[in-house]
Design a protein around this nucleic acid. Sequence first.
DNA 1: CGGTATCCGGCTAGATACTG
DNA 2: CAGTATCTAGCCGGATACCG
Lengths: 126, 126
Amino acid sequence: MARFNFEGKPPLEKQEVICPLTLTQNVIAGRWKVIILWHLSQRTIRFNEFQRCLPGISKGILTRQLRELEDDGMVHREVYKEVPPKVEYSLTELGKRFIPILDAMEVWGKEFMEIKLVEHNYYISK
Amino acid sequence: MARFNFEGKPPLEKQEVICPLTLTQNVIAGRWKVIILWHLSQRTIRFNEFQRCLPGISKGILTRQLRELEDDGMVHREVYKEVPPKVEYSLTELGKRFIPILDAMEVWGKEFMEIKLVEHNYYISK
DNA sequence: CGGTATCCGGCTAGATACTG
DNA sequence: CAGTATCTAGCCGGATACCG
């Protein structure tokens, strides 16, 4: 989430007014982040499990998406010093507070699907 | 939102299982869409007004974001046949149902901001 | 006023090879 | 198992010029 950069720590007066909506959007911008957060809202997940949950994702991009979520304080990464290695990902408190958004998105997404299915004359099984 | 394509109308059985979350994410993927939807949740807006609401956006990209939202059924475009031209954008019913997500995103974004400000030793005025 | 048409650059997803 | 390093391709935002 490069657009939100406190590194320079400029005085608050000189900061641009930051929009909470844009901020939220930036945090979850990324092809896999929303669905990653949803999986983590269900349970703790290991790295390799994610590759099975997210068909087609490569190690490289999975690592990056997880790191960015970690950097933004959404995800906790727990490393167990074992052989073979074991790393577990889970939601932080901040990440858990994001769940209402996931729920709202899921509700709306289903409404959207129903409407689009009706428009295209699909039968919708209730 | 090119990833969700019903154009070919394949049988429902052959459709991939579509995730409502991913669907929602795809609809609002776009640099300006969330903030556009928020402005439209406040009031009807004309094209030129948007350019003032969204500092730095160009006509081209504004048009594209609005068209995509229109194509996805989120935004209504009302053209008044006057000279000079007048076009008003507003939320459709589907668009209005999206407002709870905007609200949840705003709440979370503010929490996120507070946490990040505290982490960087900023004083937060209550 | 409210757009199109066109071109361009950067970001980011994705693929592949390698590693502790 | 859980990554890192490197490279590439394509999309998308942005700029600019023009139009009814």
